[in-house]
Simulated scan of single mutants.
Amino acid sequence: LMLRRSEDDTVPQWLAVVGIVVVLVLIVAMGHSYMMPSLPAWDTVLQLLSLLGAACVMGPATVAFIGAAKGVEIEGIGLLTVIGAAVNAVLSAAYMFAMEASSATFQSFQYYFDPTHPNVAMANPANVSLFTGDSLAALVVAIIALVVALVGALLGKKQGAWKVWGAVVAIAGLVCAVALRIMMYTMGETLFMLY
């Protein structure tokens, strides 16, 4: 609406600041809803920060792609995309380490069984580590996506070909975020068995 009413095809700076603040608040609120002490792999502020990391990479890459598709030169978007990819890599890696560290919470899985499935354990011990069980494939995908996003951001900044690299970086950021959620749910073994 502000853009349509604008005489010089711009919007006020305060509107951009309000937009960023609203996005940050919504991401924090969404991430905070998962923080539960009974699920050690979820109960860390790094889980919340990994969502912010995903926004840091996907936002600038998407803007770079849209700008390139419209033929608009956006000043500084290359640097923002590289910074966003680096921030996402650091925050995602930190959350992966935190998830793996949470596996030390579990000492043993020899607790009671579900009476309707007496020969099936209540939890799979392999799933509480990133390096075994169902999390391993998602870990590999996340690492590949982080590398692709970083390399794509650097190449996009160097070449200025954001139609290609903007899309590649945004998609890699999305793939990494989804892979982190898969790991989170896979490693989300609950402590209810202990009590």
Rank of each mutant, 00 (worst) to 15 (best):
M2K: 01
L3D: 05
L3A: 01
S6W: 00
W14F: 04
A16R: 11
V17W: 08
V18R: 13
G19A: 01
V21G: 01
V23D: 05
H32A: 13
Y34D: 00
P37L: 11
S38H: 13
P40G: 11
D43V: 13
T44C: 07
L49S: 11
G53D: 09
G53T: 08
C56M: 14
C56G: 15
M58D: 05
T62D: 06
A64G: 08
F65R: 06
I66H: 09
K70E: 15
V72M: 14
V72D: 11
G76D: 10
L79H: 05
L80H: 09
T81A: 06
V82A: 02
N88D: 13
N88H: 14
M96H: 10
S103Q: 13
A104Y: 12
Y112K: 07
M122K: 07
A123H: 12
P125F: 04
P125E: 12
A126W: 06
V128I: 15
T132Y: 11
L139E: 11
L139Y: 13
A142Q: 06
L146K: 03
V148Y: 03
A149K: 06
V151S: 06
V151F: 09
G156F: 07
G156W: 02
G156L: 04
G156E: 01
K157G: 04
K163H: 07
A167I: 11
I171P: 00
A172M: 03
R181M: 02
Y185P: 01
T186Y: 03
T186A: 13
T190D: 09
T190Y: 13
L194G: 06
